[in-house]
């Protein structure tokens, strides 16, 4: 092929890609909603307070959605991520309260996340159980352990580092959002530019072909779930800081929110494809919609109905355009 044709196909490819990609569609949708809200609620929506508020609310979901995206691209699902997050928060609060070195306590919280994730991975690969079953079981185990430790009561925490992570800001940007952006950037780089990321995609796309290409499928999957555990632990640390306490009910429904963000972001439930940027945009879209409904004084219960409908509508539009493209 001569250079001219190549350049032209590449150019048209970029243009086509821009319109065909899920991310740009989501971005447009976000833009439309934000513009609409800025007009409808000029003095409450587009204020730095409200924008940072939205970011604070979506940051934790976006962080664990990065892990969920890896898991779902590898062809699995992690239903334990929310309770794992809560458990990590409880563990670190408990040990801080016990009076040990707070940084050691935080490390124990992270270790908890790693162990839960690693156990998920080991049971999925070695016992050859579906991820749905293993992580559903693990979610219940984590929730049980939380209540065993707390007996249902919050554990208050006032350590300045923990509180700072949850509520502080640098140059008026919330620290937890900075953490989120760093994690999203690293996650996106790993998925698209490393050997590990390519292998995860290959496993989700066709596990047998990946195995026959010499990829150590089990080791790779265990790494994915362990990584997700680490992200859950970071989420756990942040939520303790936000609430000034380890709250036994803190992680409720986070697994569903992370799955929703991931799916709206274009990750296939069947595995093999998906992007981190998509998951971030998915989390942002859902966060902005929730925020807008609050500002518009919509009844709280109806908000939930609206969010549920959005998930279905976005995915239906995607299916439709995909089928049309074929």
């Amino acid at each position: 092929m001569d250079a001219g044709v190549k350049r032209r196909t590449r150019l048209s490819g970029i243009i086509k890609g821009l319109f065909a990609r899920r991310e740009s569609g989501l971005f447009m949708l976000l833009l439309i909603i934000c513009t609409g809200m800025s007009i409808a609620k000029p003095d409450t929506f587009f204020t730095s307070d409200n924008i940072f508020n939205i970011f604070r609310q979506v940051s934790i979901i976006a962080i664990i959605a990065v892990g969920q995206t890896f898991v779902m691209i590898s062809g699995g699902i992690d239903l334990s991520i929310g309770y794992n997050l809560a458990l990590c928060g409880i563990v670190l609060s408990y040990f801080i309260k016990l009076g040990i070195n707070p940084y050691a306590a935080i490390s124990l919280g992270v270790l908890t996340g790693i162990i839960v994730g690693w156990l998920n991975g080991v049971m999925i690969t070695k016992l050859k159980l579906p991820s749905f079953i293993v992580t559903l079981g693990m979610a219940n185990i984590a929730r049980g352990v939380i209540y065993v430790i707390t007996k249902g009561f919050s554990i208050s925490v006032d350590h300045p580092f923990v509180i700072g992570v949850g509520n502080g800001s640098i140059a008026s940007i919330p620290i937890l959002s900075i953490i989120m952006f760093i994690i999203v950037l690293i996650g996106a780089y790993v998925l698209d530019n490393t050997v590990f990321g390519t292998r995860v995609k290959a496993i989700g796309g066709n596990e047998l072909a990946a195995k026959l290409s010499g990829i150590k499928v089990n080791r790779c999957k265990i790494a994915v779930y362990t990584l997700t555990g680490v992200l859950a632990a970071i989420g756990g640390l942040i939520i303790v800081g936000r609430l000034y306490a380890g709250n036994p009910n803190a992680g409720a429904n986070f697994e569903m929110d992370s799955i929703a963000a991931t799916i709206v972001g274009g990750t296939s439930l069947a595995g093999g494809e998906g992007t981190i940027l998509g998951a971030l945009l998915g989390a942002l879209l859902l966060g902005v919609i929730k925020n807008s409904l609050v500002l518009l004084n919509v009844n709280m219960y109806w908000q939930t109905v609206a969010v549920g409908s959005i998930i279905i509508v976005v995915c239906a539009i995607d299916q439709f355009t995909k089928r049309k493209a074929e």
Partner: peptide
């Protein structure tokens, strides 16, 4: 298709 390639890649 089943064993040789990751078709969606």
């Amino acid at each position: 298709k089943k064993e040789g390639l990751v078709l969606g890649m």
